[in-house]
Structures are given as structure tokens and as C-alpha cells.
Amino acid sequence: MARIIVITSGKGGVGKTTTAAALAMGLAQRGSRTAVIDFDVGLRNLDLIMGCERRVVYDFVNVINHEANLNQALIRDKRCDNLYVLPASQTRDKDALTKEGVGRVLDELSQGFDFIVCDSPAGIEHGATMAMYYADDAVVVTNPEVSSVRDSDRMLGILASKSRRAEANEEPIREFLLLTRYDAARVDNGEMLSVKDVQDILSLNLLGVIPESKAVLNASNAGVPVILDRESDAGLAYGDAVGRYLGEDLPHRFVNAEKKGFFSRLFGG
């Protein structure tokens, strides 16, 4: 049985799709058969971030409506054999997602995969609730910024009450916090919320802290999940996050501002 992970946030633009691509690639590279599904019907962008936008024939809604089967819609990633992408429809709208349809597709995927990563759309409406309904784990992506923290808090409330596990009174969804676009220098200046400030409000397991990085834009332009950029801090931080998800105990890097030595300041860089 596959473990279903939803990447959600409430607020838009915090890094859900970037995270979904990075986590899925990270899990697949470590040997697990992983599928990543785009739930953002009508505003799909997971296919762009994964670099498979020119190979989309059938999509998630086609499979739900029995217009295509799963094998026709899943796109295998060229860089990693274990990773498959199920893109969203661009022409339909989110009403095409039904609870039964989504459940059926996830069941079928569970047969052949170890992890299913669900990239949720922003907001708390139908698309987001469909993405999180069947989840076993939730990664709540948050920027260290007041409105993002409040929206994440709202999303946590919804996860605790409107998921399948909540309705069936089963063990609740495991929630993780992923802090993205973290700028340690600004935190030290007192301009930005720190990890501790965010944890005071949300009180969640910290999966990782991803520093603000130019590598993220470069990666999405190239259609490469940023975790593959092993020279960038963001890529390394995502690698650590995957490790922590799988149970490893890794220290959080990139949380403290680097102290520049005298010579590096003198000679730039």
C-alpha cells in the first residue's frame, strides 16, 4: 500500500509545486517507486517544473472520467526510472474532480507505487480538499511571513477535520512543516519570522528549512526539480528534507546566517 503525501499550504506561491517535484524526485532517487500528481486543474504547472510539458497526452481528469487508463496518462521521468508524473487537465475545471474518482485513481496507483505525492492547488476550496482528502502525511509549506503562517494554520485545521482519516476517526494525518524562502540574514536583523516564531504559532514537526535561493528559479526555467542541483543550498536542503521524512536524524542547515570571514568580505563573493 502506498503512502499518500499531500503538499499543501493554503497560501499561494509559497513553493508547493517546487517542493512536490523535489520531494518526489528525492524519494524516487532513493529507490522508491513514486508518482507525483498535479491536482491544480486548469492552472497546471507541475508538468513545467518536471520538464515533461511536451509529452502530455492524457491527464488526471481523463483517467477519472474513464477516457484513458492510468498507463496512458502517467509520464515516466527521463532522469529517474522510478518516478512518474500524472499531470492535471488544463482545459477542464476543478469540478471534474470527484471524491470517488480521485479515490479510485489513488487506489489503482497504490498497487504499483510506494509513495504518491499530491501537489495541492492553493486555497481551501474543492481542489485543495480533494488533494488532501486521502492523505496519510501532509507537508505544510510555509513562508516565514505572517499571512502564510495564518493560512497554513487554517489549512491544518481543515486537515484535522475534513480528511478521510478525520471522518473515519482513524489515526490522524501526520503533519510536517516545511519552511521555504528562509533568509537567515533577515531573520537575524529581525525583519523576518524565525523558525522559532513560526513554530510558536504552528507547533509542528519541522521537516526542513529551505533557504531563499536563485537556484529555484533557474530550476523551474530548466524544467529540472531543484533537488537535482546539488551545488545549490536549496537543492541540498531538499535532500536533507527527504532524508528526514524517511526517518533520518539530520541537523538543519542554512538556518543560521553565514558569518563571512575577513578575506571573503575583502575579496567579494
Binding site: R150, D153, R154, L156, G157, I158, A160, S161, I201, S203
Partner: peptide, 27 residues
């Protein structure tokens, strides 16, 4: 006993309410 998240509402009808976790802004 669990945090009351933003947007959630707890109503103790006919009695007292004790909360031993945080109550988030918006709850």
C-alpha cells in the same frame, strides 16, 4: 487538548471549557 487552529470553532454548551493547548489567531 489539541491546538485549536485558525477557522475552527469550539463551543461548550451548558458548561465550562478548558483548553490546554494554544488557540490560534482566527479560531
Amino acid at each position: 487538548t489539541r491546538p485549536v487552529r485558525s477557522g475552527q470553532r469550539v463551543y461548550a454548551a451548558g458548561g465550562d471549557l478548558s483548553v490546554i493547548a494554544s488557540v490560534s489567531s482566527g479560531a
